[in-house]
Design a protein around this nucleic acid. Structure first.
Length: 646
RNA sequence: GGCGGUGUAGCUCAGAUGGUUAGAGCACGCGGCUCAUAUCCGCGGAGUCCGGGGUUCGAGUCCCUGCACCGCUACCA
């Protein structure tokens, strides 16, 4: 039997689950359910990443042990996945013994096979909030580029992985396996990144304790990526019986958000190559959910809370929306309106109402028993061709991760069925005893089309699919069925239907939005929060803040180009009491000799930085023109060198 | 700065290998039906296919160029 192993990333327990986590996991669940329907043996893994400094710090701040904090947050994930109907086969936590042993085993494989691991020193600007080092060039005013947290200069002993050695093998792997990274545009990015050269990767930290200690050197703790990525095999008892590992590794799909693609498409395969472990078959990256076109973030206050969504909408509606609304791989916008539109148009009006009308017609004309279609149905007439097309489209779309397209194809069957009913006018046929056979055929086809529809939507909307089948009088769950071949006509005549509650109730959009406290759809647009944030960013500073910046008059005494750099000049600037060396990116406009003797304005108390290996202790002020070229600020008459500018 | 991507109806998006009047869903207008969750079906309006060149008998689809937005990356101090 063919096997299918799909994973989600493991989620960091510092954060409560949000819509992004929910999306990734729903996609994985849909894939898992789809492949089970294809008769494959599926292993679906998700879990949590629980180590690291952030957890250590958060726990301490709350007076908890790290594991107690992790335990608490993990419960929230379990609860959400249960609510969302997830069918993962396993949930791994990096604090589990099987994981820790697995990490050590994987590491041991690498060290025993060569010299890919070595000890060195790591130095850089470290952001505690992000748990990451940033290159000099990315530090903005002493803050990290991602979140704006303060950074600190850190130097520590570290173990390194010779990633640089794997540049060629990785490129070859990408070339030989075009489907290794999906979508193609992401693949291009990775190829380009790797082509430009790889630096060795720091694998350990000594700055925190909460993690897996290095074998033989317990001062060192495994840094996040080696620890976390290994989960994909440690969960398979890689360091134990290896039963699952032998069955399911290599994985078919590592599903990830585009932000962590590099770790999965570069670092992870390199680790595996070094350890002599087969590589996963594919890494598939999806886009982000934006809030009405703006990026969601806590600081913006525009995050979508999955649990509150589930308070108002059915699981199936939420799952359907996530799968249908996003063109897979691209970013998509979440909006309350869009969600309600999907619920009302696709689910309530099209499908829900179709179920309702079909069952009612069966009740009225055949006492709620599925009639015999006679000789009409199986011959390419009626709805059979449309059902076949929907089946083809759904299966084809899923295999290319085009969930939205796949669902569209299914909805073409729904439309075709609605149209079929309108055209055949069964309520008129019912009034004519002579046309009873035709009536039976028409209603049989409609019911059978619904059976097929239920099967096709079951990976996305398992509960609704089951309910639909139940109302058709079927005892089985679509999940127990097979999608491997299309078979029209399996609904047995004589089946007693069981019309029940509306499958997808309509949602009162106005009432819903009003309840959210947004008077009109326009008011619901998040222009407000964004504007607020902009105001904060552009906010006036008071004089005290400005006084922190020390601007001084400097005279350029020497200038030369920085070797190997296009735009950089190395300047010696006399401040009267000292001479500073600074680096400035103005070489495209100024020749070095043209600068000597000029008086400039220098930001004198800027933290020193090293650019292109050259120390820079200050920054000169310049205006930037439309082409991005700089014009330096100077004085219209000579002033005292070293004087303060304000 | 380099590389890559995107730019198609009011909105969200489809549109291998260039070929008759450019599509779907939603929204909008009109008509039909009444089994159905004020639902369904039909018809319709609407688009300089980002701009400008070019190749071609013919380009949304290929080439060049410009603009805008996005992503990755970088010596943007």
């Amino acid at each position: 039997m063919s096997r299918y192993y799909v994973t989600t990333p493991i989620y960091y327990v510092n954060d409560a689950p949000h819509i992004g986590h929910a999306y990734t996991t729903v996609v994985a669940d849909v894939l898992a359910r789809f492949h089970r329907l294809l008769g494959e043996e599926v292993y679906f893994l998700t879990g949590t990443d629980e180590h690291g400094q952030k957890i250590e710090d958060s726990a301490a701040a709350k007076g908890l042990t790290p594991i107690a904090l992790a335990d608490a947050v993990v419960q929230r994930y379990h609860a959400l996945w249960k609510r969302l109907g997830m069918t993962h086969n396993d949930f791994i936590r990096t604090t589990e013994d099987r994981h820790q042993r697995g990490v050590l085993k994987l590491f041991g494989e690498i060290t025993s096979r060569g010299d890919d691991i070595y000890k060195g020193r790591y130095e850089g600007w470290y952001c505690k909030g992000c748990e990451a080092f940033y290159p000099e060039s990315q530090i903005v005013e002493g803050k990290c580029p991602d979140q704006g947290h303060p950074v600190q200069r850190l130097s520590e002993e570290s173990y390194f992985f010779r990633l640089s050695r794997y540049q060629e093998p990785l490129l070859k792997h990408y070339a030989d396996n075009p489907s290794f990274i999906f979508p193609e545009t992401r693949r291009n990015e990775i190829v380009s990144f790797v082509s430009s050269g790889l630096k060795d990767l720091s694998l350990s930290r000594t700055s925190f304790r909460w993690g897996i200690p290095f074998p033989g050197d317990p001062q060192h703790i495994f840094y996040v990526w080696f620890d976390a990525l290994a989960n994909y095999i440690t969960a398979l008892e890689y360091a134990g019986s290896q039963d699952l590992y032998r069955q399911f590794w290599p994985a078919d799909v590592h599903l990830v958000g585009k932000d962590i693609l590099r770790f999965h498409a570069v670092y992870w395969p390199a680790f595996l190559m070094a350890a002599g472990v087969p590589l996963p078959k594919s890494v598939v990256a999806h886009g982000w959910w934006l809030r009405d076109a703006a990026k969601m973030s806590k600081s913006r206050g525009n995050v979508i809370e999955p649990n509150s969504l589930l308070d108002d909408f059915s699981v199936d509606a939420v799952r359907y929306f996530l799968m249908r609304e996003m063109a897979f791989g691209q970013d998509a916008s979440y909006s309350d309106e869009a969600l309600i539109e999907r619920c009302n148009s696709d689910l309530a009006n099209d499908l829900g109402n179709l179920v309702s009308r079909t069952l009612k017609l069966l009740e009225n004309s055949f006492g709620g028993v599925v009639p015999d279609p006679g000789s009409h149905s199986p011959r390419g007439e009626g709805l059979a061709p449309a059902a076949q097309a929907a089946w083809n489209g759904m299966v084809g779309g899923f295999k290319e991760y085009d969930f939205s397209g796949a669902l569209s194809r299914v909805w073409e069957l729904v439309s075709a069925t609605n149209k079929f009913i309108v055209e055949k006018e069964p309520w008129k046929l019912a009034a004519d005893p002579a046309r009873r056979d035709e009536l039976g055929w028409v209603l049989y086809d409609a019911a059978e089309a619904l059976r097929v529809t239920g099967l096709l939507i079951s990976p996305v909307m398992p509960r609704a699919a089951r309910a639909l089948w139940g109302q058709l009088g079927l005892q089985r769950d679509p999940a127990e069925e097979s999608l491997t071949e299309f078979e029209w006509g399996r609904l047995a005549p004589g089946t007693r239907i069981a019309k029940g509650e509306s499958l997808f109730p309509r949602i009162d959009k106005k009432a819903y939005l009003a309840r959210l406290g947004t008077e009109t759809p326009e008011a619901a647009k998040p222009a407000a929060p964004i504007a607020r944030e902009t105001n904060v960013d552009e906010a006036s500073i008071d004089i005290e803040e400005f006084r922190k910046i020390r601007l001084r008059v400097g005279k350029v005494t020497a200038a030369e180009k920085v070797e190997g750099a296009k735009k950089l000049l190395k300047l010696q600037v006399d401040l009267g009491d000292e001479v500073r060396q600074i680096i400035s990116g103005i070489a495209d406009k100024y020749a070095p000799e043209a600068l000597v003797g000029k008086q400039i304005v220098l930001v004198a108390n800027l933290k020193p930085a090293t650019i292109r290996g050259v120390e820079s202790r200050g920054m000169l002020l310049a205006a930037e023109d439309a082409e991005g070229r700089a014009t330096i600020v100077t004085f219209d008459e000579a002033v005292t060198v070293g004087a303060t500018v304000r």
